[in-house]
Design a protein around this nucleic acid. Sequence first.
DNA 1: GTCTATACCACGATAGAC
DNA 2: GTCTATCGTGGTATAGAC
Lengths: 218, 218
Amino acid sequence: MSAIVNEAPTDTRERLLDVAERLFAEHGFDAVSLRAITTDAGANLAAVNYYFGSKEALIEAVVARHVEPVNRKRIEILDGIRQGGQCDVRSIVIAFIDPVLEAAARGIDGDNRFFKLMSRCMAARDERVSRLVMRQFPEVVARFVEIICASCPSVSSNTAHLRLMFMAGAMAHSLFHHDKLAILSQGRCELPSFEVLREEMVIFLAAGLTAGEMEAGK
Amino acid sequence: MSAIVNEAPTDTRERLLDVAERLFAEHGFDAVSLRAITTDAGANLAAVNYYFGSKEALIEAVVARHVEPVNRKRIEILDGIRQGGQCDVRSIVIAFIDPVLEAAARGIDGDNRFFKLMSRCMAARDERVSRLVMRQFPEVVARFVEIICASCPSVSSNTAHLRLMFMAGAMAHSLFHHDKLAILSQGRCELPSFEVLREEMVIFLAAGLTAGEMEAGK
DNA sequence: GTCTATACCACGATAGAC
DNA sequence: GTCTATCGTGGTATAGAC
């Protein structure tokens, strides 16, 4: 199909990443064969192994391409918050969520490719993605825990860690499965736009993060 | 190893389910081969296809064995709440979470097999598990949405659906990944017991569900 | 009915030719 | 750098033994 067409001046390696990303997001890591990827990318079967070493390494490369900038952006936003002196919980939640939504919006096509990819990773207990997560997330976790504790004096470090985990799970799951709401609700729930979903998420998670805090202040 | 040992008077079909459950939970659906399952269960390779029709159907059977009683219990608890007239959000959250924790506790071994299994399902966009979920969860969703709306007058049906999804995601993710907290936190967070995790979850989720409600009442 | 042996095709990986 | 050939392993289907 897209055999010799060189739509963009991308080299084989990059074409493989693009195709793999699209197929992985839609069908899952295991359901997509290297043969499907290389055929679609107009490359030879052995190309993946040549450029990446293994299917596992390809998966890691596909994921890392998105996760790294997202986490960099998160920390960047947290830095801005700390300097600004403002520490309301709402902006903490937004610092966690928005880089993900923006990364998705940057995607070439309008579908939820990035959400799907991300959520597939979070549930993949496989070592292939786990390793990447373990290497990259400790810093993000530490930064968020720190600012949560600063913003909510009554929340201990242990609790902050747990609440961060709840937040991550809620976000990943809803971004991944929000399009199933119509069926799950038997038509009683209309599909939310991403703007609505984002706002609902922020409200829910901010309330959860501050649970037990006194509600006196704003 | 466990070749001809007939530890319990279980038939082949049940042995296959037990072994598959254990291996799936630990390594994932795709990582476990039918050969590994049948060998461990002391059965022939073709046994899975004979009893279940396919690996996909085996997966569905393994999952359904746990999901069905959990959802039955959830609705049972909700019925009790409605009759009792009490409608505080805390008991709604507990009605959602506890059947899962109890199902896990009923497990033969002390590990988190059931959590892992459940979480693997939630992220599996595969049709194999999706179909089961779609068939079984609409009633549960409807019941929880109904009681959330009744308990929180300012929460619309749409919002209730979304918050339920946040709750599901937070629960699944934290049950699945809580044992990674030590690494993710670089040792700064101690592993919570399930009692602690449960209580933290209830607090967080109850706060999220009632977000925007007036905090006058208990 | 329950189970076994076995054959089939697709998969990931790799060695070596070009 | 790229491709072909090949190997071991995966899920599946079936014929037939008990």
